[in-house]
Write a protein that binds this DNA or RNA. Structure first.
Lengths: 238, 238
DNA sequence: TCCTAGTTACGTACACCGTACGTAGTGCGC
DNA sequence: GCGCACTACGTACGGTGTACGTAACTAGGA
């Protein structure tokens, strides 16, 4: 152990202010809000310490008094958008409540298309994440299964929401700083896919393509996936 | 449209070589292999054009003759590890076959801990992805549901595998270039979580914590999640 | 056969990134 | 009132992706 660097504390365990010295010109929340604003408007890659500082009208290095590392900034950002979850009063219908939670998560991700990318790298138990977890458990109160199963349900459902929504918005986030539109990029990718399938190298895939008439309703696909997951945990449906 | 930049072709649609000029000193596959090697050994953040060039013993800018943008490199990397999927002969038991596919995906991600992070940003229909998709459809041949439902099953299952495995390995990837160990970082995070739960602010979460006796077997949790998803699509189980 | 056009390889250069470090000034706790 | 812990911030360093220019090379058309 001797000589080894100590593990820094989680950002949430670090006190925002200790009392001594000049009054800070901005708070941790200000920084997070600025970062979120930048990510929303100009994409996640535009979230640099310099840009945040510019947005806040302060020097770049001042930020490090509030946020020790950039990775902590990412946790702040995720926590900030986590606050957008409405922690409504559970209705007693756990399926409906969880569907509502899922819909809200999806909506949040649509508003902040960079969220899935950050979630893939950060395992955060931020205050708002914990609050949301607790809220989900409250919604699941009527469900008569062990608590461990409930957390598994929450994890599974959140995972499905994330991956499904991430696929929808991946192109949006990618084409952020590029001189062509999302639709154009999608068209190119779909054209390639169509050409590949047409070669005959993927017969079953081709059949699946041929089967579908008209455009897929992504919202409907999403809804079905959620229902399936909920079914898998519903004692009355098995 | 006039004056607008054209959308570049998907990397897979670009021919590897057109015939004129000097013989290339390395191939696209060489670049992908070098990138994967670096990512495995030193983490995804170490995958820079300069490092790849050093690994290949060539100039940095030479790479751009083979890979127009770095994002394309990411697609190459994902396709390269996609080749590690064993496309076995379907047994006729679609559940067993899909479980095997899922286990392989999980194993691949454990070998290449950077995969989830890349998958969150790249929507790729690379050759190996298409082959894997076709293979999954072959495994699902005995399942008597519409083709659309089968693709939904594949998507849902892959999503679950990704999110579950990503959570396991997120810390591994994060602590790559940092002077403390994964265990130490996890300990700090868990300590914080324990402290928060102990405050009493999250009673249901606390109850869930108290309920579990002994450490959770992540592998078992994973297996259960898969079974649940498969159940949701199994006509004989509903 | 030779010429030329398209490709490859590669060095230089630029704008940008995270952040280590040093300095100056502020205001709470003793 | 003093000291010290804290804030703010400028400078600088080593890294990044990649635009651009140049030289060498080779296949196809004359």
């Amino acid at each position: 152990m001797a000589g080894r660097a100590a593990v820094p504390e989680v950002i949430w365990a670090r006190p925002e202010r200790t009392g001594r010295g000049p009054k800070p010109a901005f708070t941790r929340a200000d920084i997070a809000a600025a970062a979120v604003r930048i990510a929303d408007e100009r994409g996640l890659d535009a979230v640099s310490m310099r840009h945040i500082a510019a947005e806040l009208g302060c020097g770049t290095m001042s930020l490090y008094n509030h946020v020790p590392r950039k990775e902590d900034l990412y946790e702040l950002m995720l926590d900030a958008v986590g606050a957008e979850h409405e922690l409504f009063e559970p209705t007693g219908d756990w399926r409906a409540d969880m569907l509502r939670n899922a819909a809200e998560t999806r909506a949040i991700m649509r508003r902040h298309t960079w969220v899935p990318r950050l979630m893939a790298g950060v395992l955060g138990f931020s205050p708002n994440t914990l609050r949301y977890l607790e809220h989900c458990l409250a919604c699941l109160e009527p469900l008569d299964v062990p608590a461990g199963t409930k957390t598994e349900l929450i994890a599974l459902l959140n995972g499905v929401v994330t991956t499904y929504t991430a696929n929808d918005i991946a192109t949006v986030e990618r084409t952020r700083s590029v001189p062509w539109s999302v639709e154009e990029e999608n068209a190119v990718r779909m054209a390639y896919l169509g050409r590949q399938v047409a070669t005959g190298a993927y017969p079953r895939l081709a059949a699946a393509f041929a089967e579908q008439s008209g455009p897929v309703d992504l919202e409907e696909v999403f809804r079905r996936a959620l229902e399936r997951v909920l079914d898998a945990f519903d004692p009355e449906r098995r």
